[in-house]
Every structure is written in C-alpha cells, then in structure tokens.
C-alpha cells in the first residue's frame, strides 16, 4: 500500500500551494504513512458490485429561476481584500521566476 516519501509530500504541497518546510514534509510523511495503513482495508469491501454514494440523502438538483438578485456592495467586499486598486483585487504577478 501507499508509502509516502518526502518528495511525494513536497509535490502534493506544491499542487495545493502550501510551502511546506523540510521538517513539516518529514513529519507529514510519517503521519500519512500511519493513516494510510489504517485505511487500506476499505478496499476489501468496496467491491465492483457496490455503487458509490456521493450524497447520503437522495435528492434531485433543484433548479432556480433565472431572476437576478441583489449583489454585494463593492466597497464592503474590497474592504476585506488583502490588496485592492481601482475597484479590483490586486494579484501579485502571475508569471515569472526569480
């Protein structure tokens, strides 16, 4: 079963945008190995004939009429933004290495 390596943990970290420290990657590797061992036997009973359940209470998707509703106040939302300019949110540059 899954044995996590430190590189693998680092890769997962970069995939979900977490700048894991070296110590953290090491510690997470060990924790995840403990957890992953304990969940391997799920596959024993999850045989091909069992359908998956995504939502426990069976429902059909409700469909909403196409009618506009009140929108958020821009000043109120931008007041919560880490950085804003000219009514917009500011993102650090998107491309580029060092």
């Amino acid at each position: 079963m899954a044995r996590f390596t430190k590189d693998q943990v680092r890769h997962l970290g970069s995939l979900v945008r977490i700048a894991l420290s070296d110590d953290e990657a090491d510690r997470l590797k060990n924790d995840l190995n403990v957890i992953s061992q304990s969940i391997t036997h799920v596959q024993d009973v999850a045989t091909a004939d069992v359908p998956p359940t995504a939502n426990p209470v069976p429902l059909e998707a409700p469909l909403r009429p196409d009618v506009p509703a009140k929108t958020l106040d821009r000043d109120e939302i931008l007041a919560q933004a880490p950085k804003s300019q000219d009514g917009q949110f500011v993102a650090p540059r998107i491309l580029g290495g060092k």
Partner: peptide
C-alpha cells in the same frame, strides 16, 4: 519569486495549522 503562486503557497503555509495541512495533503 514574488508571484501569485508564491504568495498563495506562503499564505497557506503560514495561515493553516498542522492538522489542517495534514488533512489537505
């Protein structure tokens, strides 16, 4: 690099605690 991706990674590294990071990973 002072990029959006870098900002996200450091925000999440500093902003989340160990248990949350463990579950996300």
């Amino acid at each position: 690099p002072q990029t959006s991706a870098g900002m996200m990674a450091w925000t999440r590294e500093m902003g989340f605690g160990d248990e949350v990071k463990r579950r996300i990973i």
